[in-house]
């Protein structure tokens, strides 16, 4: 019975973890891509370079979202199904 409560807590925190964890990376990546668009408008010939820099920057910004994903999956499959 105590296991039920622990399981429920793990499942609730999995949802909260992925949900809140998704806010930051997405806003950050959006900001980067918005600035990349402005950059392309100023210097259209540099579009491939700007896209590459944008994607590298976004990949770093994405990392915390992936941490949330991993933790959420661990919470569900390791602690939430016992």
């Amino acid at each position: 019975m105590e296991e039920t409560i622990i399981k429920a807590a793990a499942l609730l925190s999995a949802g909260v973890c992925m949900g809140i964890g998704a806010i930051g990376p997405a806003i950050g990546e959006g900001f980067a891509a918005g600035k990349a668009c402005e950059g392309v408008a100023k210097r259209p010939e540099e579009a491939p370079l700007l896209t590459r820099t944008m994607l590298i920057g976004q990949a770093v910004s994405e990392s915390t979202g992936i941490y949330s994903l991993v933790i959420a999956l661990l919470l569900i499959f390791l602690f939430g199904r016992g």
Binding site: P25, E29, G30, A33, G34, A36, L55, E62, G65
Partner: peptide, 12 residues
């Protein structure tokens, strides 16, 4: 550029 950047922003 918008679609590429937007798609990455959608990932989370």
């Amino acid at each position: 550029v918008m679609l590429a950047g937007g798609a990455v922003s959608q990932s989370t």
